[in-house]
Each structure stands twice: as structure tokens, then as C-alpha cells.
Design a protein around this nucleic acid. Structure first.
Lengths: 242, 242
DNA sequence: CGGACTGTTGATTCGAATCAAAACCGGTGG
DNA sequence: CCACCGGTTTTGATTCGAATCAACAGTCCG
């Protein structure tokens, strides 16, 4: 099972980093404790001081932050192979929550093991640093999305981003993918109200852009949605770089 | 002059990282080319592939991104001692612009020199990685600010953050600091229109929260502003961590 | 002196929030 | 099997914060 966990990570890392055999082997030897959580559970809490990092093997997770007056803002969505709290390796206190969106299979890796790995395998260290930088790049786009795009554009952008990232790890089937999220959570992603999210979604359905059964969304007209979103994938830094 | 440049960096890094004498010495020996730029000039352009990083010695800089329909969103503000494009060390293409806000004195450090430093001095590498993680933490708060706070709260939060960061590098005098930014740029920071920024500023002045002469802002009632903002400094990760 | 930003003001519009109430599940237990 | 429950989704009516439109004043600068 630990090798299964590691393989999700390796799929992710090798998709956008150049690693050699020894690097991959070192990754496979990481001590990883597996744990399963139901949907909407806190994985790592705001204010806590974690001693391990969480590898997402299966399912969706997200990071979120509360304002003093009780509003919630989702900061990022996470897909299998990612380590959403990798920053805790160098920032000792969490400044936000990490939660499961759907039921998840998670792997926990002690900080000590990761620090050791970074010392032994500089290329892995660089790859992990790079992952945190891509994370930051996605935050930047998220800022643009919320700050300067209309509700419709925002929503379209979110769908296209998630689809694009899932495709990179081989989790789409010809433009189709499943994305289980409630309208309430979507609202917190986009800085909108639930009611308005509902209305935008309806207009998307009417236009034949997406399909939605219960809380499962699927993109129908991908290129049109991409156009609505004004989507430019540069910020995902999907390729290892020259 | 190069030592002057390095000292800004050292002030910043030692404010939130633990470095020893050899580390500091290595930083002082970095080859840094100095350059001065006027206000509102592009330092590093979106889409470019820089081979060096830019150290801000004096002045304010900011990062920004354009939407396809020509709207601009400011992503972050930068103060002396910071390296706003440190991510270019591992992400080979810029996904946003880096610009001067005010006239700036800048130092350019070749990627090769930084990579070499990281290999020689692991603690410096960790400190730099940590800086990029704090960068990401500030993006997260910026997302919350724009996504879930009212115009008034946003503006207050921005002022308090800038003040807090300037204080950390010793650039405030008892709660007072100068922050030269136009209302247009403020609008692009906060995802608001210029007109609305103007109105919020006026209400702040009327309430005696800030003072503003030309495009120089000063905080008058710091604690009240902090309260309006709902400001929690955790995300700045100002202290080295246990 | 004229021109280009920058800041200010007022009137109007509009996108999205809020309020309120149904309808629609999916599960639980009687 | 059906009644009931909590969480979602949907709908309509209304309000409100902020954008937009349109001038105009102030300031800096060549």
C-alpha cells in the first residue's frame, strides 16, 4: 500500500519535473502511513504545528481560511499525487485549514523523512520546492480570478483548471471528468453566494457547456468553456522547463 | 555598493530565518549587479524566461497579471530586502509581470550564483525556500481579502499588512510609515474601481484612521484600522519557528 | 501655458448578495 | 414501506455594494 501511495506522488512529480531512477527509488522508500477520511473532514487545522506532510492518494481535498466574521474562502483544490501542506516543512504553524472535499485516501510522511530525502537527493528537493512554487502560481491565478473576473468567467475558469490538472495525471476520459463538489463549496471557492452559483450553473447548463447530476459536474463543451474563462495554462507550469 | 545590496537581503532573511556567520558571509559574496529604475517600469515581463533574480534594495515593487480583456490585478506588494521573482529559479517562464511602484534600486543575481549558493549552504537554501513559502502565504491572505472581505475591510487590511511588514525590517517610525501608491494602483490591488477606492479612502480620513497627502499614505489610528481589517499576522510567519 | 496624470464628485446602472420559501434528494429509523 | 430529517438545490423578490459613466479640479512637469 505504501508503494501505491508513493506512486501517486511519483506520477505527479515526474509529470512536471525531471527525476532519475535513484530519485524515484528514494521516493518509493519514504515511510508513509496511510489513513482514510470521509468527506468534509479536517486533515490539518489552522493554527496547528504539523510534524508530517499529507500526500493525497485518492479523492479531492481543499485548503480554506475563515475570516473573523465567519466567512469561508477556499484557497485551492487538490487532486491525487499532491502534497497540499508541503509548506509545513518550513512554516511551522498552519495559517489555514486543509480539508477533504470527498472521501480521501491519504498518506502521512514525517517531516524528518522529507528533510532527510531533501538532503540526500537535491533533485527531489528542487522538485518539491518547485511544486510549492507552482502552488503559489495557482494562488496568483486564483487572485486574478476572484479579483478581476465576472462570476461566469470565474466559474468557467475553475472548471477548466481542474480539468486541465486532472488530465495531466491521466484522470480524464476524452474531455470528461467527474468533479464532486457542492454549490456551497463552489461559492466559497469563487467568493460568491450559493444562490448566485446556482444561477450561473443553470446558465452553463442551458448553453450546453456543462452537465451536472447531483453534485457531479462534467464539462461538455470544453473549448467554449475555455474561451469564456479566458484560460491560459502557462501558470500551471506543467512542463519541466528548459 | 554590492555589500549594501546584500545587506538589505540579509536584514530580511535574518528577520525570519536562523542563519549562521558563514551563511551571512556567503550571501555577502553573491555577485550582484545594481540597477536603478523609475516608477511604474517593468522589471521582469510576463512570458519572459529570466536568468537572474531581482533583489529589491530600495523602493516599492509589485507583481501584477492582466486578464485577456485588459483588466489588471495586482498580486503582491514588495518592500526592500525581498526577491519578488525568486520563483524564477525553478519556474522557467514568468506567469506575471514584476514592476516598480516607486523609483527603485535593484540588484540582479544570476540564477547560477543562487543555485551554487543553495548547494553550498543548505540553510540558506532552506531560508530562500521559506521566503517563497511566506510569499505563498501572503497570496492566500490576499485571496481571502479579495474574496470575502468588504471594500472597507480590504483596504484596511492592505494598509495594516504593509505597515506590519515595513516594521519588521525597521522602516517605520512609531506606527507611522510612508506608502506611496496611486488610487489606481490601490484599486488594482483590491479588485475595486478607482472611484470606489477614492470613497473608501475619504471615509477613512473622516474617521481619522489614515492621513493622505498626495499619494503618500500614513496610518493614524493603527489599532482601529487593525480591528476594521480583522487582521491576524500569523500568515506573515515573521518568526523563525520552533 | 498646455497637457497628462491623479484625485474628486454626482448620477445612474448593474451584478451579485440577501432574504425567504419551496422542492429535492439520500439516508434513518419506526 | 413510509415518515421524517438534514443537507442540498432551486425559485422569486428585494436590497445593496460597487461599477460605470461623465465631468471637473488639482498637481506636476516640460
Amino acid at each position: 500500500m505504501a508503494s501505491n501511495l508513493a506512486s501517486a506522488l511519483i506520477t505527479k512529480l515526474t509529470a512536471s519535473n525531471i527525476l532519475d531512477g535513484a530519485d524515484v527509488q528514494a521516493l518509493q522508500q519514504l515511510p508513509i502511513k496511510q489513513r482514510r477520511l470521509a468527506a468534509q473532514q479536517i486533515i490539518v487545522a489552522d493554527g496547528s504545528q504539523p510534524q508530517e506532510c499529507c500526500l493525497l492518494e485518492e479523492g479531492f481535498a481543499f485548503r480554506a481560511k475563515m475570516t473573523p466574521d465567519g466567512h469561508r474562502q477556499v484557497l485551492s483544490l487538490h487532486i491525487p499525487g499532491e502534497i497540499p501542506d508541503l509548506q509545513s516543512l518550513h512554516l511551522n504553524v498552519m495559517d489555514h485549514d486543509l480539508l477533504t472535499l470527498t472521501p480521501c485516501s491519504l498518506g502521512f510522511i514525517p517531516h524528518a523523512a522529507l528533510r532527510n530525502l531533501n538532503r540526500q537527493r537535491p533533485k527531489v528537493a528542487d522538485a518539491l520546492w518547485r511544486e510549492t512554487l507552482i502552488d503559489a502560481a495557482m494562488f496568483r491565478e486564483w487572485i486574478v480570478n476572484i479579483g478581476r473576473r465576472s462570476a461566469t468567467e470565474r466559474m468557467a475558469h475553475l472548471f477548466v483548471e481542474v480539468h486541465s490538472r486532472l488530465r495531466a495525471i491521466g484522470r480524464t476520459t476524452d474531455g470528461d471528468f467527474s468533479f464532486p463538489i457542492t454549490q456551497g463549496d463552489l461559492a466559497d471557492c469563487l467568493g460568491l453566494s450559493v444562490v448566485h452559483v446556482n444561477r450561473v450553473l443553470q446558465s452553463f447548463r442551458k448553453q450546453g457547456l456543462i452537465r451536472a447530476e447531483r453534485s457531479e459536474y462534467r464539462i461538455v463543451d470544453h473549448s467554449k468553456l475555455q474561451e469564456v474563462a479566458g484560460f491560459d495554462p502557462t501558470y500551471l507550469h506543467a512542463h519541466p522547463g528548459a
